[in-house]
Design a binder for these strands. Sequence first.
RNA 1: GACCCCUUAGUCAAGUGGUUAAGAUACCGCCCUUUCACGGCGGUGACAGGGGUUCGAAUCCCCUAGGGGUCACCA
Length: 484
Amino acid sequence: MGEVRTRFAPSPTGYMHIGNLRTALYAYLIAKSKDGKFVLRIEDTDQDRYVDDAIDVIYKTLKIVGLEHDEGPDIGGDYGPYIQSERKGIYEKYAKELIDKGEAYYCFCSKERLDDLREKNQNKKTPFKYDGHCRSLTEAQVKEKLEAGESYVIRQKMPQTGTTTFKDEVFGKITVENSSLDDNILIKSDGMPTYNFANVIDDHLMDITHVVRGSEYLSSTPKYNLLYKAFGWEIPTYIHLPLILREDGKKLSKREGDASFEDLYYQGYLKEAIINYIALLGWSPGTEQELFTLEELIENFSIRGLSKSPAIFDIEKLKWMNGEYIRKLSLDEFEEVATPYFKEAIKKKEVDYSVLSRLLHTRTEVLSDIPEQLDFVDELPDYDIDLYIHKRMKTNPENALIYLKEVVKVLEGLEAWNFDTIHDSLMELVKKLGAKNGQVLWPVRVALSGKQYTPGGGIELAELLGKEESLKRIKIGIKKLSNI
RNA sequence: GACCCCUUAGUCAAGUGGUUAAGAUACCGCCCUUUCACGGCGGUGACAGGGGUUCGAAUCCCCUAGGGGUCACCA
């Protein structure tokens, strides 16, 4: 067998949902795992749905995640053009060839007649199927209508008996009755091909060896197979992917507000985590490894690991995986990706971002939950003194008051203000008072943050807030506790 | 509705006739510990149901149920 060639063929709708991205990923992996080529083709034959900039979204997304194509509209290649609207003439030629072979025919039925037909079918509760009205037009009749300038489409002529069988690498052999197949439109009245036609022509012309797409195309694949056969072309290897469903078991959709790659990315999910997670939705390496770089995915990918049943997109697991990727970052790398969120969270105060990074590194699953964790920094929130009660720490408002007063004395005397000096002085105090660590440090933490949970404890927060602010907050705590 | 496909814990999943039915996540507990998180250890939890075939079935066959996909001059 020659070189493996796969393609990702999105239609430019301005939105790359997770299912699309995963299809691109698998197509890429299948090609790359066999040293093949990955082609990008834009399927823009629906002029009504054309969206400006949509193609850029596709380029951008593929670039961000590192699925670089070997051929495509932006970089060219030997099989161009790679935009279907620029290939219009090609489809026409092949459609005519099919007509000559008796595998397709002109249809002059008006939209009105078709709508009428559809309505009748609906009343009878039978599925719509073209009635073959124009199938038996004689050559002379066709010629006459053509010359009269009547608008037409070209339809595929389906066999009316027998069955069609095709083999899919994931789903196995699938057989359908030919009589259930509709005479699909190949060329629309505006001269553009439908997807049904264009994908077959282009996949063949571009030497695509493995057709990778979502399983929603499984039921129309017999028609494509018939097309290949009509042309006498070699049938590609079909690889239909199980769908990705959302939590309620429905298909992911933009209209329902389901997350796209972009949404996730801008919410603070790392691209590596997104790719890694979706790679595992519908595919298993067969080992216990779960964390994969793109390189490792290429090395480990095999069609055999693809599953047939749809997978539900579980944001919780993505979160966990994102946390794993964040923890794998160095402190510097973490600071770099987290800085925009630090800026968002802290406006008034000057704080050391490297200290923030140290505190938040293991406490961040998704970057966007950073601000909430830091909401006490700019301003001490108002809090209830019940926060000073902690059973396990053996603290209560009474002893907290005593300890905080001691803490103030110690901290006021500190010259250098850093983690070590604060730590050592407070620990010394703990020892002197004969208290437990928590008895002193819990009240400090509460006084500094006014919160039940914080990234880091009393010492870390004191370091973060600085001497002046820390003492100010502890004194506020003392005041609160004195008022009871 | 018709046709096609799918069905192992809440979720992702391993499993290809003989396993105590992996692992991950989520959840719960314990340890570590100045809260939380991280880390470590442990636990609850699954072969949709019913018939076959077989010495033996999560694995093969049939039926039922549930879910999904498709039925456009959209892709």
